[in-house]
Write a protein that binds this DNA or RNA. Structure first.
Lengths: 361, 361
DNA sequence: TTTATTTGTGCAATCGATTGCATATTATAA
DNA sequence: TTATAATATGCAATCGATTGCACAAATAAA
């Protein structure tokens, strides 16, 4: 296990934390130096048109000389906006979410906003506590992907009542009347299934999760529709419900084999469950994709490292983050004007890899 | 590609952003209501011993009634500390870093601090800009994993001079005299190599990167030492240098095969390069681990999904984040006292999987 | 009963930047 | 030359919470 070994004084010197009498310089210091007032300095720094070019130049120069660093806290307090935005995700520790955050950050930083990240750990109390903490930190708004178990939404609706911008992404709900960004899970399910059919499969198993989360239902709906559109009768006994983790995929695959049903493909609504199934199939000497074609969902980074590489549906997480941030700033900038919550639906893309590619080889 | 389709008015109502006359309540509101002063309210909320229990109870009750939310900005401005800490990583979008952040967050949130995350994208200018942005946001300190190309460190040394707590983790340097948290890469390299030797290998290839980054050098050193300790002569032509991504691993493996050298194992200092090698070996019908045993480094999540699963060295990223945060708060709390920068070295662990396990099967 | 403490609150300044309004200076129009 | 407008800057209040110091009331000690 990871232990903490402490070594002292490597090639470090003992150092004394000197609070440095160099008190940070403020606009008042600049003002004093230039024999003008702080208000003029403030305006000059903000490029206010009422300030002469000469003064502006002088202020900017002196600011540089004194190594002036603006205190955003003071400005935030006065202006009532902090240039901070909060992001709540179930966990940061998943490729999908960290990529979304990356997208959000890109857009936010460009607009000179900073991002505060918090994790709900799929726990509603945690989610509420974390939201309050963000509000206390006076974030200018919040972007959220709600937890699996979140079934009350007052805390979010309160935000909206207070006029605090809120955007939901990926894990959304219609119980909250605000802008949201999702991918078209239905389409993703449809594309995946259609692809399998085109590969010649017609006994397609589906792994899904029927809990409250919308996304799986939509993928399932896409699966059904693709079958229908291609004249393939739906067979309920080919649908396996589980928690969609790797072990669940293994379990479903084992049940499937035990059932002796015929099947020539599996469309798993999760990459993890797909990998579990892949393992079981290989253990049983079932050839992928020749005996059974396999498609996952999410295009997790590991999908290209499995053997065979796993066909999957990309959700474009970075783009989702960007879109969410853009939606967010639209709300932020529409203050006091009428504002219509909008739903941004991103198009998923089927990433075809060997696990489902029968022809050619 | 992901397009943005905008649908209006799904089951959303048009909603007007009402700045809600409900101005946020402040301690003054509570004070007025209770006919006491704001200072008393402030002290009561902070559980100051000079305030009577009765008053405290009244204040707390009224605070709840009025739905009071403290304004951390105001407190931060006055107290000169924001309860915000900044984290800079090359990218958030990598399992290792997002896990470290998770660890940092856990500790920080418990102490009522929020974490602001920023990415440097391995670019030094970006790193400096992002650091300044964090300072302007008045973070109480910073935790950093420095970029690959960062070769100047004044911006960090400035922090230290100003007495702003700084902790380095994983990607560190001795050019900055502050606390740091790393794993023992040397030991990781040693363990990996030793394990291969114990499996009966004695012609062990090593994939490494010889750039400025310390971590690869240390792993290499561990490799050399393990060879030496086991009486295996070092063969320079078995060492392949590259950028350590998947394609680089492929390339190195191809060169290796083309060289016709004999080898019975590969220790790659990166999981990605290891997977690249795995692909090439399999394409050449070389059996893993029977013909060639394979070990990676980092224990990326995908290592358990490859075929065969890849033996690797775990760096315990969450624990690293926790240790970094603990180090950070030690500095923060040692203010004005003498403070000795300390180096925390975490022990890595070899996670043995099938790619290197010759016996048994 | 008087003096010394302790206890509980209030007063007012402060953190640093912003901003509505007033004012002084200069340029333009009448 | 005087009235008017434009330009540039200053004054002072403000955002909301914190905190050193003062002070009154209550309690304890003399």
């Amino acid at each position: 296990m990871a232990e903490h070994n402490l070594f002292y004084g490597f090639n470090f010197d003992i150092c004394i934390l000197q609070k440095m009498n160099s008190k940070k310089t403020t606009i008042h210091d600049i003002a004093k130096e230039l024999k003008i007032t702080a208000s003029t300095v403030s305006r000059a720094l903000n490029n206010n048109p009422r300030i002469s070019e000469a003064t502006k130049k002088a202020v900017l120069g002196m600011a540089k000389d004194l190594n002036y660093q603006p205190n955003n806290l003071a400005a935030a307090l006065r202006k009532g906006k902090s240039q901070l935005i909060g992001v709540i995700v179930p966990t940061i520790n998943r490729s999908f979410f960290s990529s979304v955050i990356r997208g959000i950050e890109e857009v936010a930083n460009n607009l000179n906003y900073r991002v505060i990240v918090s994790q709900s750990n799929e726990d509603i109390d945690n989610e509420i506590a974390t939201l309050n903490a963000l509000l206390n930190a006076r974030v200018d708004g919040v972007l959220v992907s709600i937890g699996k178990n979140t079934n009350r939404f007052e805390h979010y609706n309160n935000l909206i009542e207070k006029g605090i911008p809120l955007v939901l992404f990926d894990r959304t709900t219609n119980e909250i009347s605000t802008s949201q960004v999702v991918i078209d899970d239905y389409l993703g399910g449809y594309l995946a299934t259609e692809h399998l059919i085109k590969q010649g499969c017609n006994k397609i198993v589906h792994f899904t999760n029927l809990k409250q989360v919308n996304i799986y239902k939509e993928r399932y709906r896409g699966y059904l529709e693709a079958l229908k559109d291609n004249g393939i009768p739906f067979n309920q006994s080919l649908v396996y419900e589980s928690n969609m983790q790797l072990v669940d995929g293994r379990e479903s695959a084992e049940k499937l084999l035990a059932s002796k049903q015929e099947f020539d493909a599996i469309f798993s609504a999760s990459d993890y469950a797909a990998v579990g199934a892949m393992q079981v199939l290989k253990e049983n000497n079932i050839k992928i994709p020749f005996d059974v074609a396999l498609v996952g969902f999410s295009n997790e980074p590991f999908t290209s490292f499995t053997d065979p590489p796993l066909t999957s549906v990309s959700q474009f997480p970075i783009e989702m983050g960007q879109a969410a941030a853009e939606s967010f700033f639209e709300i932020l900038n529409s203050k006091k004007k009428k504002f219509i919550p909008q739903k941004t639906v991103l198009q998923p893309e089927l990433i075809i890899r060997d696990s489902s590619l029968k022809e050619g080889t």
